[in-house]
Design a protein around this nucleic acid. Structure first.
Lengths: 224, 224
DNA sequence: GACATTAATCACGATCGGCTACTAATTCGG
DNA sequence: CCGAATTAGTAGCCGATCGTGATTAATGTC
């Protein structure tokens, strides 16, 4: 969260970086420079002639020194007034970081599991909730589950990631059959032995072009 | 598009109002006050202490004098620089208007079918495209098809709306069976005779609570 | 070598979904 | 008054898909 400008900036860019620690979603927070024990979503004010994406990338770099595997805009937030920047509106971004990537965060940045997030400004709290909701609802349209995993993973790890995001247990055979039909992954020739039990084959995300899915509609998704 | 402020506003609210005319999606454009034959998405600058939703509602009222049946934020747009407001960023909204509602638009406002939209500022063009993409992609999560229809409709009309949005023909029996299973509509005791042929029963949108859909995942939606 | 443990697959029954064919109710043209 | 045409709505077959329990495979531990 670098430079603070004298005048209120027109808008801020706030980034919700998510990863998985110990089987739970976690968000990256930065220590606020003023408060003693206060934490906030990393953010920065927009500068002149800089795209929003560029600002978001800069904010990511300042906390992680590595780009997230996936990044997307959430929307604009302005109805909750209080925000560290005092700007009128903030534009939120979500970024996904593969689980287990060594995060070179000093004492200024830390991962907080979602159920243990400290008090944030009202606007940032909205942004965080929207980010999580977005990730959960776009799972079947964006490869978010894969972006939370390292490049190579076992099918069990992938299934556990889906179970975490869907908050629902899945049956192993069904999950793999669906995966087969979707042409999303391809096996590598590497295997991983995780202590006891049969070693698991490693896969990588490699979506293939498919015929445009003759399947009709699923109106039952519109359940509410 | 009321008052123009002396200084560049911090941001603008741009509204994409969509409806269906003659079996096609159409967007409402307003005549720009300066240009002779120029059209633009209705927009307004944000005022102090006004929520974004409130601005969007005000913009809708100024062109339609009736609230859209459904409204949602699309996101913030700032990377395309040129915009009538000259603001740094614009926040886009989509609104859906039931087909056939008499739009009391004077010569200052008109519906343009999507394939015949005049040249817009680069940023507004992006907003329009994002709005259409959003409506098309959220069909199975929001009742957008119903918001483009009047309160009472025949199942054939509903099917045609789905076909229009999906750009895909659907089979009548399958569509109705899926509708049955989704508990989304309920029949009224009214019927409509559309010239020749058997009269059709009218339905209304009335989603029912359902047991949380035991069904697993559909990974094949993640096709790309 | 017996057993626990984890991976991966098989196979059965139930449900779903696409499709053809049918019935129902109305208008139109004799 | 009587069909032909037209649109609405349903029945039912059959292949595809899906949930599930059971089975086989490959490793570590004792």
């Amino acid at each position: 969260m670098p430079d603070r400008r004298p005048r209120r900036p027109p808008y801020s860019i706030d980034v919700v970086l998510l990863t998985v620690v110990r089987g739970e979603l976690a968000v990256l927070l930065s220590r606020a420079p003023d408060g003693r024990e206060k934490w906030a979503l990393p953010w920065d004010a927009a500068r002149n002639n800089e795209t929003m994406d560029a600002v978001a990338t800069r904010v990511c770099k300042s906390t992680l020194d590595q780009d997230p595997a996936w990044k997307e805009q959430i929307g604009a937030f302005g109805d909750a007034k209080r925000h560290p920047s005092e700007s009128d509106i903030s534009v939120g971004f979500v970024g996904l970081v593969p689980a287990g990537t060594p995060s070179p965060v000093g004492g200024e940045h830390a991962w907080f599991p979602l159920h243990d997030v400290p008090l944030l400004s009202p606007r940032q709290r909205l942004i965080l909730d929207a980010a999580v909701g977005m990730v959960r609802s776009r799972m079947d349209q964006s490869p978010v589950a894969f972006r939370l995993l390292p490049q190579m993973f076992t099918l069990t790890e992938l299934q556990q990631m889906y179970e975490l995001l869907l908050a629902k247990r899945l049956h192993k055979a069904s999950f793999r059959r669906a995966l087969q039909g979707a042409w999303l992954v391809e096996p590598t020739d590497e295997w991983r032995s995780e202590g006891r039990g049969r070693p698991a084959q490693l896969y990588r995300y490699a979506p293939r072009k498919r015929r445009p899915a003759k399947r009709g509609i699923r109106l039952d998704l519109l359940s509410s």
